Computed example of a mutant assay.
Amino acid sequence: MKIAAIQMCSGLDPAANLAALEPLLADAAARGARYALTPEVTMIFPENRDQLKSVAAPFEGHLQLAAVGGLAKQHGMHVHIGSLPIPLEDGRFANRSVLFGPDGGQRATYDKIHLFDADIAGLNAYRESATYKGGDSAVIAPLDEFTLGFSICYDMRFPRLYNALANAGASLMAVPAAFTVPTGQAHWHVLLRARAIETGSYVIAAAQGGSHANGRATYGHSLVIDPWGKIIAELDHDRPGVLVTEIDPAAVTEARRRVPALVNARDFAAPGLRD
C-alpha cells in the first residue's frame, strides 16, 4: 500500500490553505497513494486566540472539510486532515483530526488529547488548555490492509497512547504535527522512531514547515518509519512537498514476532514512598 505525507506551510486564510493543499493531494494520488496525511493545523495556523475565533468555523457544514471530502472522492483515496480548530460551546476549541474515505465520506474524527501547558525558564507560561479543550478518547479506524491509529503532535511524547492504540489493533500511527525548529532538531526523529519501535508499527508524520504568517517557524522533515524503527522516507527540508512510500503489513507482523513487547507487557504497582 502506498501512503503519502503532505508537508505544508499553512497561513491564516483557510481558503488559501485549501488552495495550497489541492495540488499536493493531486500529486499524491498521481503517484499511487491510497492514503494521504496532512499536517496539524492544516486549514488555519492562527496567530492568537482572537484571530482563531474570528476565522474558525463550526464542524457541521464546514466549507473546507466539505471540499476535502470532494477531493478524496475525486482521487479515490483516503484523505486525513491532520487537524483543524473546531469551536466548542465553552468558548475553547477542539484540535480535531478528520479522516475521509475514497467515497468522500467522513470515516473517523479524533480530538487531540494531550495539551502543552508549561512554564519555561526565561519565557512566558504557555497554556494550550486556555485555548483548546483536550479530547478524552483514543481512536482507530480501518485503512485497507492496515488499522490506523490517530494522534496529533504533542501526543507523540506520551507512549501510553500509542501502546493503547497498538493493543487495540493499530498498525499504522498517524502523527500530524507543527513542531518548532529547536524541538524538531532535538526530538523529532528520536521520538517518532521510539513510537514505531515500541509498538512494532509504521509511523507516518506529516509536518508543517517553514516561516508562517503568524510569525512562527516550523521544522518540516515529514517522514515514514517502519516497524523496526528505520526511517524509510523523509522530506529532508522545511518546504512544502509530498512524500510517497510503500508499506507492507507483513513488516508489522514480523517486527512484533521478533520483539513481542506488546504481549510481554505486565501490569505493576506504582512506586510509593517508604518509611
Results as ranks from 00 to 15, higher is better:
Val242Pro: 04
Gly209Tyr: 09
Met173Ala: 05
Gly210Ser: 00
Ala206His: 11
Pro14His: 09
His237Gln: 14
Gly200Phe: 04
Val68Lys: 04
Asn48His: 15
Thr183Ser: 15
Cys9Val: 10
Ala205Arg: 03
His212Phe: 10
Ala15His: 08
Ala233Tyr: 05
Gln185Ile: 13
Phe45Thr: 01
Met8Leu: 15
Trp228Ile: 01
Gly209Phe: 06
Gly135Leu: 13
Ala29Pro: 10
Ala205Tyr: 03
Leu52Gly: 02
Gly82His: 10
Gly70Tyr: 12
Val224Gln: 05
Asp275Arg: 13
Gln74Cys: 03
His75Lys: 04
Ala94Asp: 13
Leu18Gly: 06
Asn48Gln: 08
Ala207Gln: 15
Asn48Met: 10
Val55Gln: 01
Ala213Met: 09
Ala19His: 14
Ala168Leu: 08
Gly210Arg: 02
Leu148Arg: 01
Val79Glu: 07
Met156Pro: 00
Gly61His: 07
Leu165Val: 11
Leu18Asn: 08
Leu191Asp: 15
Val242Gly: 06
His80Thr: 00
Ala194Lys: 11
Thr109Arg: 04
Ala66Ile: 05
Ala67Asp: 04
Gly135Gln: 11
Thr218Glu: 12
Phe59Met: 10
Gly209Cys: 10
Asp119Thr: 15
Gly82Trp: 09
Ala72Tyr: 06
Lys133His: 05
Gly200Arg: 00
Tyr219Glu: 08
Asn17Leu: 04
Val41Pro: 00
Leu21Gln: 05
Met156Ile: 10
His114Cys: 12
Met173Pro: 00
Pro176Gln: 06
Ala36Glu: 01
Thr218Phe: 14
Ala94Glu: 12
Val98Arg: 01
Asn214Leu: 11
Gly104Lys: 09
Leu123Cys: 08
Ala125Trp: 07
Thr131Gly: 06
Gly215Ser: 11
Ile3Met: 11
His221Ile: 01
Met156Trp: 06
Phe100His: 11
Phe59Gly: 01
Asp50Gln: 13
Cys153Val: 02
Arg96Val: 02
Ile140Lys: 04
Gly91Ile: 12
Tyr202Trp: 12
Pro142His: 07
Gly32Cys: 05
Leu262Trp: 05
Asp103Gly: 15
Ala270Glu: 12
Ile120Arg: 10
Gly105Asp: 15
Asp13Asn: 15
Leu243Ala: 07
Thr38Asn: 03
Pro176Gly: 04
Val41Lys: 03
Gly69Met: 07
Ser83Thr: 11
Trp228Met: 06
Gly104Arg: 08
Gly104Glu: 14
Ala164Ile: 04
Asp144Met: 14
Ala168Phe: 09
Glu128Gln: 14
Glu234Leu: 14
Asn48Tyr: 13
Ser211Ala: 14
Gly272Tyr: 08
Glu145Tyr: 00
Arg127Asp: 10
Gly76Leu: 07
His62Pro: 06
Arg193Trp: 03
Tyr110Leu: 03
His237Leu: 06
Phe179Glu: 09
Ala125Thr: 15
Glu89Asn: 09
Ala15Gly: 12
Ile86Asp: 01
Tyr132Lys: 03
Leu148Trp: 01
His75Met: 03
Gly104Met: 10
Val244Asp: 00
Asp144Ala: 15
Ala118Asp: 15
Ala265Lys: 09
Ile152Ser: 00
